[in-house]
Amino acid sequence: MRLYAKITILNFDHRKHTSDVVNWNLYNLDAASPFRAAMQLILGLDPQFLQIVGLSLSVTLTAVLIAAVIGLPLGALLALARFPGRSAIIVLINALMGLPPVVAGLVIFLLLSRSGPLGALGWLFTPKAMIVAQSILVLPIVIALTRQIIEDLWAEYCEHLTSLGQTGVRAIPTLLWDARFSLATVLLAGFGRASAEVGAVLIVGGNIAGYTRVMTTSIALETSTGDLALALGLGITLLALTLAINAIAFGASRIGARLAGAS
């Protein structure tokens, strides 16, 4: 907190440097400079910056997709199945929604390390490891919220589907499809969690320039090199990107829901 409180009153020096790691030099830094930095990043179409944005998006979207493919059916199953210990599992998964990214990252790190059980894969410090870590972070959100949504929908559809002989597992495709607009919001929540986290991807990805560096780890790095304007600029860019994706998804889902009469 103190660090950021200080930003507003600091007078940034006009200093040049010739580092190749950071090509986005910013010389005039004042209160508006983070926004200018963000504009320069977005409008400048710097290939390094675009690579980072592209990697951020592809890692996070892949993680959300994987979590969706696993979590949607699993959440639906949990909504419909009745077995001893079900409540305990629901509570556990709800709790895992708050799993600290650093902890998830550390566990994946230990698993994927060459000295760990999955070391032979050679995935540590690669985008694959980042995808795995983010999938694990998103999965509980998808399962927990899907379970709630499908349980509510099942209460409504139960008699009709039972009458048609669609009970248990056979009802899952119908329920998932009919809940698609609510589930889109679930995936957005997952996307938000994954795109915002830094702890897990930093640990398992290693923040390697040009290879595993994503927006959040760049922000952490620029903060540590003291380029706070650039760090904030990156933050604004990330926020804008997240906002855009949410707006598109929200709009599409709203229109779709209205057309399907699901709202």
Partner: peptide
Amino acid sequence: LFIAAALTVCTA
């Protein structure tokens, strides 16, 4: 959904 997931992983 599966195809999309597979494609994304392949592209990555």
